[in-house]
Computed example of a mutant assay.
Amino acid sequence: MSLRLGAFQVGEEIGRGGMARVYAGLHERLGTEVAIKIMAGPARESTEVRSRRFAKEIEAVARLQHPGVVMIYDHGIIDAETAALHPKLQRGIPWFAMEYCSGGNLATHQFENWVDLRNALVTLLDALAYTHAFGVLHRDLKPANVLISDADDVRHGIKLADFGLALGEEDEVTAVHSSLGTPHYMAPEQVLGHWRDFDASTDLYAFGCMVWRLVTGRPPFAQGDAVLTQILTSQLRDTPPRFFPLFAVPDTLEGWLRRLLQKVPLQRFRSAADAMAALPDEDAPMAPFDDLQESVNITAFENTVVLPDDATVVVEQTFNDPGFMTWDEDALSQDGVFRRNDQSLVTTTTDIDKLMPARSA
């Protein structure tokens, strides 16, 4: 039996993560293709908690009217009649319909030259500046959360999407060790759950990790099959590795990226506008480039491990999608370390705290 939500006919599933499933959809009267996101979420969270986070995403995106931010058309909840006809859907679960981006996302897109990449970065930095001006922090910037609209879509271009972890100016994280995000793209203060330090520079750190990935084929702190504890430790204390771009880039780009990836927030660019102003121009001098260097698989380094929901640090899905992670507040007093194949993956939050650089007075 076909599923209809509001004015939309729901089609086949086109994506899923730990927080939601996404379906192709069609506005029945207008014939407009849409994407319909229906809340799912980790079983360890209550429906109320998941619904609240999902509602925050709707609220955040609905007030952001920018060509570089995905647009929401409508939203609602699953009513009793719909739930009765479709047993997999739970009554009261929220959904929303957004613009359909047929080009996929940046997780599987490979840029081939600096001009095309720079154009994309300008669009995304402008979108970030806009969202930050509205007091919204994304908190989960990564290639998979940047969608690509082709020429036949409603609005051509690239779009920031998946604001499920977004924080507004009035929001407060009540649990000191609460931490959400994708490990390969998390700023140190986000890894530690130091929510009072979250600001625009937190998103810019993730943006730097994402650009590093788009240029080199891998995030800065992903060495082969790096396990979770190594990634988190590197985010806290390691400098980025040697920079090996897959195509010719300006000789000042590496320095620009390394500033975004500073461990101390005050040492990064303070705003997306500042980062855009410092971004190398299209005609900037290029660094020497050897196009015979070893090729890099651009998807292999974001699909690392899946951990169960009883570890101190919880990753409900793969790092690539959606990379949901929380500190388990109930486990903070325990000394146990979760192990997979006899290899230590996760230390306690207290151990991770010791790795953070000391804050300047």
Score class of each variant (00 low, 15 high):
40 A>L: 02
191 V>D: 01
52 R>M: 07
95 W>M: 00
29 R>C: 00
211 V>F: 02
175 A>Y: 09
136 V>G: 11
9 Q>L: 14
140 D>V: 07
243 F>C: 08
262 Q>K: 14
290 D>Q: 10
56 K>Q: 09
321 D>L: 09
73 Y>S: 03
20 A>F: 01
258 R>D: 12
77 I>L: 04
323 G>P: 04
210 M>Q: 11
202 T>N: 06
167 L>I: 03
275 A>Q: 07
278 A>H: 14
55 A>T: 00
109 H>A: 07
195 W>L: 01
47 T>V: 05
218 R>E: 14
252 T>I: 03
248 A>Y: 10
291 D>G: 06
42 P>E: 10
152 D>P: 04
30 L>G: 03
212 W>K: 14
163 F>A: 03
148 I>W: 06
266 L>G: 15
253 L>T: 13
8 F>P: 03
187 A>K: 08
122 V>T: 14
269 F>H: 12
203 D>K: 02
75 H>P: 00
13 E>N: 10
42 P>I: 14
38 I>N: 02
77 I>R: 00
70 V>K: 00
165 L>F: 00
243 F>D: 09
288 P>W: 08
168 G>M: 07
118 R>E: 14
81 E>L: 13
295 S>G: 12
308 P>M: 13
155 R>A: 14
205 Y>G: 04
112 E>V: 03
286 M>F: 13
9 Q>S: 13
264 V>E: 13
340 R>M: 10
283 D>C: 08
7 A>N: 11
350 T>E: 15
249 V>R: 09
164 G>H: 01
327 W>Y: 12
307 L>R: 10
295 S>M: 09
173 V>T: 14
32 T>M: 07
77 I>E: 00
153 D>A: 08
248 A>S: 15
123 T>E: 15
226 A>W: 04
280 P>D: 15
343 Q>Y: 06
189 E>D: 04
3 L>C: 05
223 Q>W: 01
296 V>Q: 09
154 V>I: 11
96 F>I: 00
271 S>Y: 13
288 P>Q: 03
251 D>A: 12
54 F>L: 08
332 L>Q: 06
342 D>Q: 12
337 V>L: 12
359 R>P: 05
246 L>T: 10
234 S>C: 09
97 A>I: 00
57 E>Y: 06
188 P>W: 04
234 S>E: 14
265 P>R: 08
333 S>K: 09
68 G>M: 11
349 T>P: 08
68 G>F: 09
344 S>K: 03
340 R>K: 13
51 S>R: 03
132 H>E: 10
200 A>N: 09
23 Y>T: 03
31 G>E: 14
12 E>F: 00
354 K>C: 07
270 R>E: 15
240 P>Q: 07
65 Q>M: 03
311 A>H: 07
180 L>E: 05
152 D>T: 11
133 A>D: 14
173 V>W: 10
163 F>S: 01
28 E>V: 15
20 A>Q: 00
167 L>A: 11
308 P>L: 03
234 S>H: 14
227 V>R: 00
254 E>V: 13
23 Y>Q: 04
306 V>H: 11
315 V>W: 11
206 A>L: 07
303 N>G: 05
12 E>R: 00
328 D>H: 09
194 H>L: 12
193 G>V: 01
337 V>W: 05
295 S>F: 11
47 T>F: 12
144 A>H: 04
20 A>W: 00
25 G>K: 00
164 G>W: 02
223 Q>N: 04
119 N>V: 06
12 E>N: 01
238 D>P: 03
219 P>L: 12
269 F>S: 04
